[in-house]
């Protein structure tokens, strides 16, 4: 087993242990212990608005599949989709879902059906619709524009894997005077989101949707585990700088050469 493989296993096992540990000790998770993220507050707010106004939310899951690193962003989007469907089950109109990837489209429909069944949405007409809008970034963006411009859509939630084409979606929401909550794992798109979306999700905030939307304590435990690892990484970086400054970096170069 290579050093990289060993490091990977250690990291995963540690993460697993921390998540289980925090989920056990936090029997009564208190969301007030996590820092506020305005975008998720906005999602909750917009769900309430859609319930009162009789409007619907638009959730776009991007064009990321499940077979690459972008799958995490897509799965995070699916988690948010599930929570939004549960919270907006009393809406007159269910959320409308658009995807740019075939696999995510299937998973989105599966999530929709499973969640609707779980919350006993008897009226199948009230089930949210999940559709594949386009298989390329721009065809996806162009197809999503028609949904954003729907007068009955009160807010747009873009969570998943997007490229620079997301600026179309955010500016279209702005022109419709509807709030736009957007988050993606792609860095150039994050810059675009920061400049154009009303409520951006930056960096790992995208993956914290479940914790902020009440998906369960395992999501809160995930955040706690991430924080632990974040501090570990910070200490490792600072320690590496210190060792480099002191000239004791040969050992780590050897490790890196072996792992990478």
């Amino acid at each position: 087993m290579s050093a990289t493989g060993f490091t990977g296993i250690v990291v995963i096992v540690l993460f697993l242990g921390l998540m289980i540990f925090f989920s056990i000790i936090n029997q009564e998770p208190k969301q007030k212990n996590i820092r506020p993220i305005p975008a998720y507050d906005k999602i909750n707010q917009e769900i309430n608005v859609s319930v009162e106004d009789g409007t619907q939310l638009h959730i776009s899951l991007g064009r990321g599949g499940i077979t690459g690193p972008e799958s995490a962003a897509a799965l995070a989007g699916l988690s948010i989709l599930k929570q939004v469907i549960e919270k907006s089950s009393v809406c007159d109109y269910p959320p409308v879902v658009s995807t740019g990837n075939a696999v995510i489209s299937i998973l989105a429909q599966d999530t929709i059906q499973g969640t609707s069944k779980a919350i006993s949405v008897a009226d199948k007409g009230k089930n949210p619709s999940g559709e594949l809008v386009g298989v390329t970034p721009f065809s996806y963006a162009a197809g999503t524009l028609t949904t954003i411009r729907d007068k009955n859509v009160s807010a747009n939630i873009h969570t998943g894997w997007f490229g620079s084409e997301i600026t179309w979606l955010t500016t279209a929401g702005e022109r419709q005077s509807t709030p736009t909550i957007a988050g993606t794992a792609q860095l150039p798109a994050q810059a675009v989101i920061y400049a154009s979306a009303s409520d951006p999700l930056i960096g790992e905030e995208l993956y914290a949707g479940g914790a902020y939307l009440g998906a369960g304590k395992i999501h809160l435990a995930s955040i706690s585990a991430q924080d632990i690892f974040r501090w570990i990484i910070i200490f490792i970086i600072l320690g590496s700088v210190l060792l480099k400054f002191l000239g004791i970096d040969t050992f780590f170069e050897y490790i890196l050469a072996g792992s990478m």
Partner: peptide, 15 residues
Amino acid sequence: DDPNTAKIWIEQVGT
């Protein structure tokens, strides 16, 4: 043109 694709190639293949 996709940084993620570039990263995939580097991390999955380049290593």
